[in-house]
Amino acid sequence: MNATDDTAGEGPSSAVDDTDPRFAQALRELGLGEVIGRVRRLPATARTTAEAAASIGCEPGQICTSLCFAADGVPVLVLLDGSAHVGMELVRQELGAGKLTRAGAHLVREYTGYGPGAVPPFGHRTKTRVLVDRSLLGHDLVWASAGTPFTLFPMDPRTLIAHADATLADVREPLA
């Protein structure tokens, strides 16, 4: 399956009936109800970038990775190109935080309403600050979690950033 072709065929199947209900409602509230029909249910879990890319048939960089942190105790979600690594010090500086820690599974669920490996870019339980690394803009289309470890949806990065009410930042760890 071509990464820019979200029609049915071999590989992932349409997930209209499998879309997380909270995420489907968030899509509707954002005026993105048509995206529900583009959600793909994967044949196996996609908790890692490699698993997601292999299932969709795209490059790892086209997977929008969602990472949850606590900046001075306040939730923040960082979205970046799946081939990138987050620079925690860069995130801390961008936020002007004194302390930045990775959010544990309990806090991820509390902040977003979704489990680790299944956090979508928007539609969270609580208002969560979102940073998006500029690396996502290097792609015409990215695949992001649709609220379960088995579902992804395609979207152009600029639309995703706008609906996530995100701030663009440079938080990708520099290549060594």
Rank of each mutant, 00 (worst) to 15 (best):
H163M: 12
I36P: 00
D72H: 09
A50M: 07
T7F: 09
V91M: 07
F150D: 12
L175I: 14
H163N: 15
R38W: 10
G87A: 14
L160G: 04
P157L: 10
G82I: 01
D170C: 05
A84S: 12
L137E: 05
S66P: 03
D140V: 07
A166N: 06
D20L: 00
D165E: 15
A162Q: 14
P75W: 01
S13I: 14
G87P: 00
A162D: 13
A144S: 07
P120K: 07
P157N: 09
H85I: 04
T4C: 08
W143P: 09
L42D: 00
Q25D: 14
E29M: 10
P149D: 14
S14R: 13
A164W: 02
A162S: 13
A44Y: 07
A71K: 00
M1E: 09
G87N: 13
V35F: 09
H163C: 10
P21R: 07
H124K: 02
D17K: 13
V76N: 05
P121F: 03
P43H: 14
T48W: 04
G73D: 12
P116W: 01
R125I: 00
C64K: 01
D5L: 11
V91W: 07
L136C: 06
L42N: 02
V130A: 07
R47I: 01
D18K: 13
M88Y: 05
R102Y: 06
N2F: 11
G31F: 07
D156E: 15
T48Y: 08
H85D: 04
S66H: 02
E34I: 00
R22V: 05
A105G: 09
P174W: 07
A46C: 12
P174C: 10
E89L: 03
S14W: 10
K127Y: 02
